[in-house]
Design a binder for these strands. Structure first.
Length: 272
DNA sequence: CGCCAGTCCTGACAGC
DNA sequence: TGCTGTCAGGACTGGC
């Protein structure tokens, strides 16, 4: 499940492989992604014959900027964006292929079709600008986090998953950050003290930076732009560890469902 | 307007 | 062995 660290790892691994490269050909599968089918006319206009200028990231979105426009990309649950040799057999659920020089191509594969591949010319799509605070930016301060959380009565766990408040956290890193900060996931956002907000800010930054340092968490499908798995799954403290002893106090890790998502935490270390 | 439940989608896996 | 049912969750939609 690609969250900020996985998307950033994909971005970093793709950057040297595709920036300054020219897209010499385009292929699109007839399969539709759930949100929308990549528009063939726009694909041509935005990407064909274009030079790749940059690959940027905001939250869990990637933005490939080209000389003619670009593409807004989201990996959803199972999306992969990798550079392959042209002769490498196509995997099922390959949605887009962008041919590069030297017999290589950038492939977008997404079995569960929760992702997005939207070419554009002119204005960058609105989703890109609607995103909340970037937790890795200098501007992500305790005060900013507290302000964002005070805007909602929702449980802090659900608020942290709201991409318009803070962009990039998903279900895994939210559980990890709340554990590290000693904050109970069901605590309402409005009840987060300055002291707790400071701990939470530091914990969010720490788990995301650690995730990037470990090249992402590979529990199911996730791989980077070169097809390599990450190592961060070995460093998770609570996610997926229901019933196992807490690494801090030894109590059993608890799982509860919040917002139809599994939430892992330690009742002793994360008091309300 | 804010919140929440429901929805989509496929592969992996458990159980019979 | 082969089938069926359940589960995983990001982001959107519709109802209240």
């Amino acid at each position: 499940m690609p969250e900020l660290p996985e998307v950033e790892t994909v971005r970093r691994s793709l950057e040297p492989l595709v920036v300054r490269e020219t897209i010499v050909g385009i292929w699109r599968s007839p399969l539709a992604l759930r949100r929308e089918k990549p528009d063939p006319r726009l694909l041509k206009k935005a990407l064909e014959g274009a030079r790749v200028d940059a690959i940027d990231r905001a939250g869990k979105y990637l933005l490939m900027r080209t000389s003619q426009g670009g593409a807004l990309i989201h990996l959803g649950m199972s999306g992969q964006l990798t550079v392959e040799k042209r002769e490498t057999p196509l995997r099922p659920h390959t949605h887009v292929r962008l041919s590069l020089r030297g017999g290589r191509e950038l492939r977008y594969v997404d079995p569960r079709r929760f992702g997005l591949f939207r070419p554009f010319v002119g204005e960058v799509p609105a989703e890109w600008n609607a995103l909340g605070l970037d937790p890795l930016a200098d501007a992500f301060t305790t005060e900013k986090l507290r302000e964002a959380l005070k805007r909602t009565t929702r449980a802090v766990k659900l608020a942290l998953l709201d991409q318009e408040l803070i962009a990039g956290l998903g279900n895994i890193y939210v559980s990890e950050a709340l554990f590290l900060a000693g904050v109970h996931p069901a605590l309402p956002g409005t009840k987060i003290s300055t002291e707790k907000a400071a701990k939470l800010r530091d914990a969010i930054v720490k788990v995301l930076r650690q995730g990037i340092a470990n090249r992402g968490t590979s529990l199911n499908d996730y791989v980077d732009g070169e097809g390599l798995s990450g190592n961060n799954q070995a460093f998770l403290n609570v996610y997926g560890r229901e019933g196992e002893p807490c690494v801090t106090c030894g109590a059993r890790v608890k799982m509860s469902v919040m917002g139809a998502r599994s939430t892992f935490f330690c009742v002793k270390c994360q008091r309300r």
